[in-house]
Amino acid sequence: MENQKKQYQQKYEEKYKKYKPSPPLIKNALWAFFVGGIICIIGQFVQNIFIEQGMTIKEAGGPTAVVMVFISAFLTGIGVYDEIGQRAGAGSIVPITGFANSIVAPAMEFKREGYVFGIGAKMFVIAGPVLVYGMVTAFIIGLIYWLRI
């Protein structure tokens, strides 16, 4: 009985795969490449401005991130970033601007549920896991490094 059901499901899955439209791989990859690349050029440009002000490359990293996050928050606020994302896919998700978008979008969306449980709590729906796993990984690597020195 259970086996027969599995067989039916497998047969249907094959049928579904036959009709399932596949994403336009090359077109999507080109969009992601160009948009992602352009965001990095803007980042490089901003970073160079800070370096010209006399900062080291390392010091310029922080303020550059701040500017990029600001641009992303603004574009998300006026409703443009999701339009870019519809075409660019990972090109606008993977840069730090995408991380900022993932914080701003739920914060805006859930304002109607209040400032504490809406904006405050929902802000980290997607960014939360990123911080959690990023920090835990950094902790483990730090621990290994400390044990070795």
Binding site: A107, M123, A127, M135
Partner: peptide, 25 residues
């Protein structure tokens, strides 16, 4: 970890909050 990334995280939270206050989806 947090010291090195403080600017980005701080900016994302503060600008995220401000954008949510100012703009509507």
């Amino acid at each position: 970890a947090l010291r090195a990334t403080a600017s980005g995280v701080m900016a994302a939270v503060v600008f995220g909050f401000l954008a949510a206050v100012i703009f509507n989806p």
